[in-house]
Each structure stands twice: as C-alpha cells, then as structure tokens.
Write a protein that binds this DNA or RNA. Structure first.
Length: 401
DNA sequence: GGGGATGATTGGTA
DNA sequence: TACCAATCATCCCC
C-alpha cells in the first residue's frame, strides 16, 4: 500500500517532461534531495489516497492543507495529463451513439396522433369519423363519440406535456447540480471540461431513457383509446333500415345466384353508405343464414318477391318503352338494380299472372329455386356472375303462364 | 336481464 | 382470393 503512490509517480508518463516537478528534482542537485522530495510526494499521494477513510472534519482540514501545499499545482497538472491520456482516450470513442430507432418510432407516432407537436384538429378524429361512418353507424351520436375521443386525447396530451416538462426541469436541475459539484471538485482533483461535458451527456441519456418510457406509455394509452373508440367490432352498429332493405331486395331478386359482382357490390355499398367489405359480409352472412333456415326467411322472401313483382308489373304496364330494362324496386326504395333479365323474376311474374297471388306459393317457388340450385353449390364465381340469365332461374322463366 | 338478431372476425377450403 | 362455416361481440326488443 505504501508503495502504490510511488509506483504511480514513477510510472507516470510525461512526469519528467513536466514544467513544474522536474525542475524541483533537477534543481535539488543531490541524490539525497531527490529522495527526500520523492518521499514528500509519496506522503502527499498517501494523504490523498486515505482521505476517504477520514472523518468529514479531518478530510476538510487535510483538503485545505493539500490545497495550500506548494507541490499541489505541479502534482495536479501531472494527474490531469495522465488522466487525459489514458481514461478519456479510451472512453471517447464510445460517446457518439446513433439515434435510437425505437425512440424515433415513438416520436413519429406521437406526432401522428397529435400528442406531441402542434395541437391540431386531429387526423385521428377524422379517422375515427371515417371508421365509424364505414361501419354503417349513423352520424347522430358520432359527434358525441368524437368529442369524447377528442377530450380523452387532449387529456393524454396534457398529461404527456406536463410530465415531459417535469422531466426536463428535473434533468436541467440535476445537470446544473452535477456540473457545479464537478467544477468545485475540479479544484482538488483533475476534472477537465471535456469530462464534465461527458458527464452531462450521461445524465441526459439517463433522463432520455425515462422520457422514452413516458413516450411509450403515452403511445399505449393512445392505442387503447383508439381501439376502444374505433374498434368496429366493439362498436357494431346495425345497418339502417333503408340499407337493409336495399340489400335484401338485391338478395331476394337474385335468389338463384346471390353473388353480386364487384361492380354490384360497389353500387350497393354506395347506395347503403357502407363499405364494399360490409356488403360482402352481409351477403356472406345472409347466404349462410338463409340456407340454414329457409323456412324462417320464407315470409321475408315472399315480401320482397311481391315487391319485385309489383315493380315489374308497373314497369311493363307503363309501356315497355323501347323494351327498356325494368327496375323492380320497392316503393320508396333507393334500389334500382336491373333485374329484368334475371331469372329470379320468374317468381314475381308467376305470382302476378296467377289468378290469385299467394305468398306461400311464391315462397314455395323461392325455396324450390334455391334447392334446385343445390343451395348455390353450383354457383359460378361471383366475378363471372354478371347476368344471372344463364342461372337456374331462367329455366323457370318460360313457366310464367 | 335474457335471448334472438346481426355485423364482424377467423380459420379452412377450393 | 372469394367464399363458407363457426364464432364472437354487440345491438335491440321483450
């Protein structure tokens, strides 16, 4: 232990070249003087080494003694030099770090959600509106939901900024405190400005990791909020009556082949103010549920068949001007699908031409038609179904009288 | 609140 | 990739 300070001194690079200490050694002239000085330096280093073992008062007194020592500036400069050459050169290379991609993602997301950056009308709110509209929801209570969403988002934004401000303040305070401490310590131990700067960077990194946690939890909160407000499944809305009528009308007027083409789906979607995917869902559900329980849908089928028939009759009685395709719509319905060449119309015409219109009779036809089609088993792919004339329904078309 | 209705989702199939 | 079948989650009427 006693040897350590001496070893440090003797091995210290640049010691001999230093302006302060070597002069003392050389000026001394004799070996005895040199030994005495070495011993003196050893004692000083020894005191420095053991200063932490002493009580605060003792240490303060010793510190004062060391500060006033005539060898102190020379020793201090040498230690600075050694430290500069060894420690900082090793660590210097590790300081530059690339931007954290995770942090960048979080920042982008917070910006996109309108949590960070300038406050805006809310693209998310617009997205919520679009999603709600797409899910077939009527606009009546959408505005209430949006304002609720907006309020909650603004709450998250407020909390985020408050916490961020707190973190920044704490970071600045802590940095200032550490810098002051290091500046004060730099009077008694070698601390270069570069080292202080490095320490500040370390503190900033630590605080930015806390900030990242804040950003992460804010993102999570926004995600939860979004899913709660925008999850179509949670916020399922029944289609409005008119939309259901339009869809049913198409379904029953194309009962032999209820597979609307992409164009028909788009048209239906437009008319019903829903998405094409919702139209597909609806037809998928309808086909399955109809097939599973035809009896249950009999009445409905009859009703729509009758409507179609009435529309067809009206169209023909108004003079089949230029043999224009009829539009078998229900009165008041917005649907205007061209089914004049649809084989499904057979049942309507059949019903009309019969002496007495019997719903059950039409229903029976509907059922037999589906059954004849093997429950749509042989239905062509939807994309190829543009005209159901070739469908099984057309087989019955000449049986109308 | 219960239960049927209904829109959406998911996994499998051709 | 569209469709089917089963299932889920919600709506809505009683």
């Amino acid at each position: 232990m006693d040897e350590q300070p001496r070893m440090m001194l003797s091995h210290a690079p640049g010691m001999a070249a230093h302006a302060g200490l070597p002069q003392h050694v050389h000026e001394g002239g004799t070996v005895v003087d040199g030994d005495a000085r070495k011993q003196e330096l050893g004692e000083i280093l020894q005191q420095i080494m053991t200063i932490t073992d002493q009580s605060l008062d003792e240490a303060q007194a010793r510190k004062h003694g060391l500060n006033c020592h005539r060898m102190k500036p020379a020793l201090f400069n040498v230690l600075c030099e050694i430290k500069e050459k060894t420690v900082l050169s090793i660590r210097g290379a590790q300081e530059e770090e690339p931007l954290d991609p995770q942090l960048m993602r979080l920042d982008n997301m917070l910006l996109a959600e309108g949590v960070s950056g300038p406050e805006k009308g809310g693209s998310s709110v617009a997205a919520a509106a679009a999603a709600a509209a797409a899910s077939g929801g009527v606009g009546a209570d959408n505005s209430a939901e949006h304002s609720d969403y907006k309020a909650k988002l603004s709450q998250i934004r407020q909390i985020y900024h408050t916490e961020l401000e707190k973190y920044e303040q704490a970071c600045n305070e802590f940095t200032t405190h550490v810098m002051n401490l290091l500046r004060e310590q730099s009077r008694t131990r070698p601390i270069s400005p570069k080292e202080i700067e490095r320490m500040v960077n370390i503190i900033h990194r630590k605080f930015s990791s806390i900030q990242m946690q804040l950003k992460q939890s804010t993102c999570e909160a926004v995600m939860i909020l979004r899913s709660r407000f925008l999850d179509a499944r949670r916020k399922r809305r029944n289609f409005n009556k008119q939309a259901t009528e339009i869809l049913n009308e198409y379904f029953y007027s194309h009962l032999s082949n209820p597979y609307p083409s992409e164009e028909a789906k788009e048209e239906l979607a437009k008319k019903c103010a829903i998405t094409v995917a919702q139209v597909s869902n609806w037809f998928g559900n309808k086909r399955i549920r109809y097939k599973k329980n035809i009896g249950k849908f009999q009445e409905e089928a009859n009703m729509y068949a009758a409507r179609t028939a009435v529309s067809a009759a009206n169209a023909s009685s108004h003079g089949s001007q230029a043999n224009s395709p009829s539009t078998p719509n229900s009165a008041g319905s917005a649907a205007s699908f061209n089914v004049s060449n649809s084989g499904d119309l057979f049942m309507s015409v059949h019903a009309l031409n019969g002496d007495s219109f019997q719903g059950a009779q039409v229903g029976a036809n509907v059922q037999s038609q589906v059954m004849a089609n093997g429950g749509w088993q042989d239905a062509p792919t939807p994309s190829s179904v543009t005209s159901p004339t070739e469908g099984p329904g057309s087989v019955h078309s000449d049986t109308s009288n």
